[in-house]
Simulated scan of single mutants.
Amino acid sequence: MKKTLQKGFSLVELLVVVAIIGVLAGVGIVGYQSYTDSAKSRVAVANFNSVKRFVETELTLLNNNIQTVSGAISAGSDCSSLQAYTVYSDNLGDFIKGLTCYFGTDGYGNAFKNPYDAAGGNQIVYNSAAANVKKGQINIAHFTAADYTINGAVIPAGGLFSSGGTSGYFYVEYYTADGAAGSEGEYKAKEFQLK
């Protein structure tokens, strides 16, 4: 009787294949995480730039009396009670809140979700203290009554900080980490004036 030899993989061969697959998966996962982190950063910064450009455009129209009623921005103390922003009628705080509502996930304009927030929370926040702002969020705020540092320069306390006036200065800043605003390159905050 002829004995047939059964061919198969040895335990050592199987272990080598499993080890190779493990190494390839480890390299792939690290590469994928790097790719997703880079994509999140690019989306967040693109949204930041969009907000700055939008504000520049609106302020050009409003500050130069090309429009006296904004076609895009509504104003109000909260997102549920907004009306069209009218120059010299609505205050700076309501204007800034209207900007925040425009970009909010439940707002009336372009909804920006924070790419770093797994729950899909708002990327735009209104007048928040630095300690409360998370990585990837954009804070739209009026200056406080105290000295304020923006992009490394101290803005001294003075008369341009009131949110209750119909004109004044405000800023838009991007947070590169929880509680830490960016201060260089494309992460720099931008100061605006509503005249």
Rank of each mutant, 00 (worst) to 15 (best):
G31V: 00
I66C: 10
L15K: 10
K195M: 03
G109P: 01
A157H: 11
N132T: 13
Q83E: 08
N110W: 06
L59Y: 12
K97F: 04
T4C: 03
N63C: 05
A141G: 07
I124W: 09
R42Y: 01
A25T: 09
E13V: 10
Q137H: 05
S128F: 12
A153Q: 14
K97Y: 08
G26Q: 13
G26E: 11
F103H: 02
K7P: 00
V154D: 08
K2H: 01
Y169E: 04
A46M: 04
D178I: 05
L82T: 03
A19V: 11
K2A: 04
L14S: 12
L99R: 05
G104C: 13
L15V: 07
T86M: 08
I29W: 12
R53K: 13
S128L: 13
L11T: 09
N91W: 11
T60M: 13
Y187G: 11
Y175M: 09
A146W: 13
L15R: 10
F103I: 08
Q137C: 04
S77G: 12
Y187T: 11
Y102T: 01
V51R: 02
T149I: 12
T60D: 15
T57G: 13
A181C: 07
V87T: 06
A25H: 02
G104L: 04
G136D: 06
A130N: 15
L15M: 15
S50P: 02
N47Q: 14
I96E: 00
S81K: 12
T176V: 15
F143D: 14
A180H: 00
D117Y: 01
I124A: 06
S50R: 08
G71H: 02
A72W: 02
F192M: 02
D147V: 06
L14D: 07
I73F: 03
Q83L: 10
